[in-house]
Design a protein around this nucleic acid. Structure first.
Lengths: 195, 195
DNA sequence: CAATTAAAATGAAGTAGGTCAAGAAAGGAT
DNA sequence: ATCCTTTCTTGACCTACTTCATTTTAATTG
């Protein structure tokens, strides 16, 4: 059952007894999402925090001139949301779309607040998630500031080899802060070198 | 007294009774830092979380070719640390330096863990800090991905007008992801337009 | 307050990466 | 299978921004 997967994940950070595991499990709802389906859209408040059981997602913004810019990817055992929309409960600016047929476990904002209030352990868990997320983004910002396009791509390959096959190239390019044409050239340069 | 300033800050997010406020106050130590003094350096583990009572700080990395890249600024009522070093307690990669004569309140890593364990409210407080930090960095990444150098500078001016006078220009340029010369040109273009 | 050092400004030349346009390849739908 | 749409590739040209070198200005320190 998919809830087992979430509980196992949470147990990596805080140890839950049977009652607590049950409490956690019932707070989340399983939903199936078809490829190309949106779970968050601009102007609608992001109501849920979502844990990916199976599948892949992408969060991105669209600028006035129509360009897409990817903020995040998520596959199995990652969380996705428009975080600004979710924690402040105001309208989203991001799109979040399924890149494959997917399964999510979702918790509602109010339900999450109850959970955290009811038990110190859940508060600790979400604190750790936020801290790890923040540390991750610090590493990302610093890496992006200090490396050129080619190095950023190679670093992504190295750290997330399993993402690369599941994510469209134009989306990866926009995540790494370069044009899709430029990433195409980088790739071909590389494969040509190899052979 | 400077601890009052911290307690007031914390009260914005969780409400503390007198005992709790006292507990918080005694967990922190006040330290004076001279301009140009480092509070964090690469290879040394970042032992403290620091709250700025007075003054200004800058965290940055230096690349192999000697270039500096600024990750963060902090003035009164902001927190500073090499967050990756602090939360994982491994060696820092960043420098953190005082830009002015400053006063900090610092808590040691272990002391912070005790505080969080001892009282749900402190856990909640640090959870909120991390979430706000993460939401902030999401906004930053997205803005940087979607705007050119001039717009990034103008946005900084707009959002942090009080930082601009206190931060050297080369540091701001490296925070905004451009060369110091280019920022200089942007500025002069602007002031010339005004007059 | 003079001397020294660090930061900011400016010009000239170079480049990493972008944009535009058109074709090739790959996925989905029927 | 075939048609239609989306994604990827490639070439030619362009520009936002960098780098280097030098001068000017501002900030520190004795």
């Amino acid at each position: 059952m998919s809830k087992k997967q979430l509980i196992d994940y949470v147990q990596n950070f805080v140890s839950l007894n049977d009652d607590e595991a049950e409490q956690l499990a019932t707070a989340f709802n399983e939903v199936k999402i078809k490829k190309r389906q949106f779970i968050v859209q601009p102007n609608f408040t992001n109501q849920h925090r979502s844990f990916v059981i199976k599948g892949a997602f992408r969060s991105y913004a669209i600028t006035d001139n129509g360009q897409e810019h990817t903020l995040q990817f998520a596959i199995e055992n990652w969380w996705v949301s428009d975080f600004n929309s979710y924690i402040y409960q105001y309208p989203a600016t991001l799109f979040i779309v399924a890149l494959e047929d997917s399964i999510l476990l979702q918790i509602e904002y109010e339900k999450e607040q109850e959970l955290k209030k009811s038990n110190h352990k859940f508060e600790t868990f979400f604190r750790i998630m936020a801290e790890k997320g923040l540390a991750f983004e610090h590493r990302r910002i610093l890496f992006d500031l200090t490396h050129d396009a080619e190095t950023r791509y190679e670093n992504f390959l190295l750290n997330y080899p399993n993402f690369v096959q599941r994510v469209p190239q134009y989306a990866l390019a926009s995540y790494l802060g370069m044009s899709t044409e430029f990433l195409s050239r980088l790739r071909n340069k590389k494969t040509r070198k190899k052979s």
